[in-house]
Structure formats: C-alpha cells, structure tokens
C-alpha cells in the first residue's frame, strides 16, 4: 500500500470541507473493498477520510412506511436488527449473507451502495425497495442512482448519509453464489409494494450492474406466483459472461433465483 494520510472528522461538514481542500481524497467506511484495492495498488488515495464516527451516518429508525438505515451501519448490525427483521426480514437475510462473519462486522451498507459492485447484494434491495439515497446535499431516488459498473450518481466529495427503504407489503431475496468466491452469480430481490407494484431487481448478473427485470415484473404483476416467471429469461446480451459463468448460464440463473425469491417471500434463500 502506498502512503496515505488518515483523517477522522467528527461532523459531515468537516468531512466534506476536508475532501474539497485536499488532493486525491477518498472516503473510508468499512474499507473492505477500498483497503484490499489499496493493498493491490489499484487505488492510491493520498488522503483517507473515515466517515464512521459522523453521528448522522449511524442508527436505524423505523417510520410507519419507511426504514432508515445510517450509511455507516455494518452488515452484522442490519442482519441482527430486530426492528428490521420485524418488517423486512429479507433485508436482514440479505445482510447476513454478505461475505463472512468477520467481513460483516466491519463492512457497511453505505460503502456497499456507494461502491456499486456488480456482484454486491445491497444494490438489489435498494432498487427493489424503491429506496431514497440521502446524501450531505440532496436525496436521490434509487431509480436514478445507479449508473453502471462501480458507478453511481454521487458527485466527487458527496457523502451517502442514510438509506431510506420503502416498506413493502412483502419481499423475498434469493441468491446463487459462486462456490469459490461466494459472490452472487445471480441474485433477485422481489418486492410487492403497498400500492400493488412489483419490483424485481437483479444483481450479480447484469453487464451494467444491478437492474430491474421488467418482463418478470409484468409477469408477476399479472399473477404473483413463482410459476408466473417460468420459462422467462432476460436477454443474455445484457448479462455478464466470464470464466465463472457464461451469459446464457447467468440468464438461466436469473430465472431460477427470481422464482426462488417469489417462493420464499418473507425470507431469504442463499445457495
């Protein structure tokens, strides 16, 4: 790892102003993507601005139709949250399926959603649960937030502060993992919202990252049963193909995990 200077601001304002004053800064949250990347010398920020002790980034609050999670909340905290489990159990199951115990103790929801790894779990929940991403300067709807592989609408220096999930009527998450890396080869977060709208968000498979699978949404809108998506496959030209899984296999897996998510509403199925 190249040399870097570590900063730990106590307020949002201090963090943002520091970012604008120094050259080549990066925000650090759990760091479980950034630090390995820095160790591999694929990133070399001269300044690391640790956002974890900024008060606005912590805490889980529940409203009548919303769950708001601070960006610095660890995966372990979300997975163990009784408040979330009572309302969106699939979100706890999703968080509990990320990485391993040690990684979940440190990695954060904000880090995952800001990094937008195409195989990350959280982006699918953000999209399917029609979340709002609150930053230090504005609020971004999930439908406008994701902008391709490892890319979001966040501007340089903008800090993701909290994520506001819309409470669905019911939701389910199913993931099929690469047996070696344990990252999703394909995963589906399916939510039926209180207004009757059905959202199907797919991660791990899309060649532009997380996406809404509209054909499956239409089929489930007509009939909200696992069989409704039987035989339905996404266009493999839109999917990733690599040494782990060619695009046609990923297309097949997307169909499988979507069906399994609908079969496991109120829960999580990880294979």
């Amino acid at each position: 790892m190249y040399e870097t200077t570590y900063h730990r601001p106590g307020t949002l304002q201090e963090a943002v102003s520091l970012f604008s004053k120094v050259e080549e800064a990066a925000y650090l949250s759990g760091g479980h993507t950034l630090i390995p990347t820095m160790k591999g010398r694929l990133a070399a920020p001269a300044h690391l601005i640790d956002v974890r002790r900024i008060p606005e980034l912590s805490g889980i609050t529940v409203g009548p139709d919303r769950i708001i999670v601070g960006a610095a909340t660890t995966h372990a905290t979300v997975a163990a949250s009784e408040k979330i489990r009572a309302l969106i159990p699939s979100l706890c199951g999703l968080a509990g399926s990320i990485g391993d115990v040690q990684v979940r103790h440190v990695g954060t929801i904000g880090g995952s959603v800001a990094n937008n790894d195409p195989a990350a779990d959280y982006p699918s929940a953000v999209l399917a649960l029609d979340a709002t991403l609150h930053t230090d300067r504005r609020s971004i709807p999930a439908s406008e937030y994701f902008a391709g592989l490892y890319t979001t609408m966040l501007e340089p220096g903008e800090i993701l502060v909290r994520i506001e999930f819309k409470m669905p009527e019911i939701a389910g998450y199913a993931k099929f993992r690469n047996p070696a890396s344990r990252y999703a080869l394909a995963a589906a977060f399916v939510a039926r919202h209180r207004d009757g709208n059905i959202h199907v968000a797919i991660t791990g498979a899309g060649n532009a990252g997380v996406f809404r699978w509209t054909e499956a949404e239409e089929a489930l809108q007509a009939r909200f049963e696992p069989d409704a998506v039987k035989g339905l496959l996404p266009d493999e030209n839109d999917l990733m193909g690599d040494m782990h899984a060619p695009a046609d296999y990923r297309a097949h897996l997307v169909g499988v995990v979507t069906r399994r998510a609908v079969e496991n509403l109120g829960g999580t199925l990880i294979e």
Binding site: Y6, G31, I35, R52, A76, Q102, H105, V106
Partner: peptide, 13 residues
C-alpha cells in the same frame, strides 16, 4: 468484542 480480519483494518482507525 467482534472478530475481524486484521489485514484489512488500519491501526489508526
């Protein structure tokens, strides 16, 4: 109180 991987945590943090 939490098991972590010490190769991926900065001492300063």
């Amino acid at each position: 109180g939490k098991a972590v991987k010490s190769c991926t945590i900065l001492a300063a943090s």
